[in-house]
């Protein structure tokens, strides 16, 4: 149903135009005998076609068209202006001023029907294109969501591939990623950054893929030489992920390289100190160590939570960024919920 707005100060013209519009079918005429009242209606309603008389008291058709076009989203709506057949100059002005076409008085039904139909066809085309554009935008958004979701899944699976070769578990990845996100939030990082670290933290140990089994899976203590090889996983992870076009993989590269740095400069691989260590690395260091301490492994029992917390506190400014430790302790209750949610024995399937 097309909404056809008719504005004419003459009652007889309104009645005639209404009758002709109704004859066309599929049209709902909305009539006003005053342009200002019509404008008021237009603020809350969008007509499919405007038929406006030129000569009206207080506001003529040209001024009405200008005011109508100035309303948000009304620039494309077809407008027909009615002029007397001797008003050629007005017709030109109307066309220049935003009318799409004009009707001459006295109104001729054949001419009227043809012009109104043309304008409504134009409007139908506009609506079709707008719907199509909106539909395509929705579709792109949906596909983009799918791709992002797949990217996240792939990253998680890559992370797990590394962890499969290690005593660590899928639940460890989930927990340390969520701990990282809690710390990031506590540091007042924006929501997108907090989400980024949640997605990228699982990649911290991806470089372990490149460490030989006899070292990676060695049950006993590593010799200094073996430990040196083990340490290479940080740079291996970085090399694997660096220069990616994906923001998550870029962040993952940085985390892989920096999560074993220590605040006092005694960490590896680069021995960076304090704020020279990338922030994501400082955050993940706290999250990763806390989870390693509080998880049971074939070679060790899980630490008590209090002991693990004390370890973090004692490591402030030596091992860890004190702000990251504070932020983690401030989010302690949330961290316990994460620990409860991702337990080793019932790690959620992916």
């Amino acid at each position: 149903m097309h909404k056809v707005l008719i504005i004419d100060d003459s009652e007889i013209n309104l009645t005639l135009i209404r009758a002709l519009v109704l004859k066309l079918g599929e049209c709902e005429p909305v009539m006003f005998d005053h342009p200002l009242k019509a404008l008021e209606w237009c603020r809350g309603n969008v007509p499919d076609l405007v038929i406006v008389d030129y000569m009206m008291p207080e506001m003529d058709g040209l001024r009405f068209i200008a005011a109508f076009r100035a309303l948000h989203g009304r620039t494309e709506i077809p407008v027909l202006m009615i002029t007397a057949n001797d008003q050629k100059d007005v017709r030109y002005e109307a066309l220049l001023g935003g009318a799409n076409d004009f009707l001459t008085k006295p109104i001729d039904r054949i001419e009227f029907s043809a012009r109104v139909r043309n304008m409504l066809a134009l409007r139908t085309g506009q609506k079709f294109l707008a719907d199509r554009a909106a539909h395509l935008a929705d579709e792109v958004a949906e596909r983009t969501r799918d791709i992002r979701e797949r990217e996240r899944e792939l990253i998680f699976r890559i992370s797990r591939a590394a962890e499969f070769r290690d005593p660590e578990t899928g639940a460890h990845i989930q927990r340390m990623a969520h701990y990282s996100e809690i710390i990031a939030r506590g540091l007042d990082l924006d929501a997108a950054t907090c989400n980024l670290i949640l997605q990228a933290a699982p990649l911290h140990d991806v470089g372990k893929i490149g460490i030989r089994d006899h070292i990676l899976l060695k049950p006993g203590k590593l010799s200094p030489q073996e430990f040196d090889i083990m340490k290479q996983h940080a740079m291996l992870g970085y090399d694997l992920l660096k220069d990616s076009g994906s923001e998550i993989l870029q962040a993952g590269a940085e985390i892989a390289r920096s999560h074993h740095e220590k605040y006092d400069g005694s960490g590896y691989p680069r021995g960076l100190k304090g704020s020279a260590i990338p922030l994501f690395g400082r955050i993940v260091a706290v999250a990763d160590v806390f989870d390693a301490l509080t998880s049971e492994r074939p070679y060790k029992k899980a630490w008590a939570l209090d002991d693990a917390m004390r370890f973090l506190e004692e490591g402030r400014s030596t091992h860890f960024d004190p702000l990251c430790v504070e932020s983690f302790i401030a989010g302690w209750d949330e961290a316990l919920e994460v620990r409860q949610r991702f337990r080793d024995e019932e790690a959620p399937k992916i």
């Binding site: 009652e11 007889i12 009645t15 005639l16 009758a19 002709l20 004859k23 006295p106 109104i107 001729d108 039904r109 054949i110 029907s113």
Partner: peptide, 17 residues
């Protein structure tokens, strides 16, 4: 002819006039 042969509309116009 201008009114597309519509007697109804013609009658209405006369009334309104």
């Amino acid at each position: 002819e201008r009114l597309g042969g519509d007697e109804g509309i013609f009658a209405m116009m006369v009334d309104m006039f």
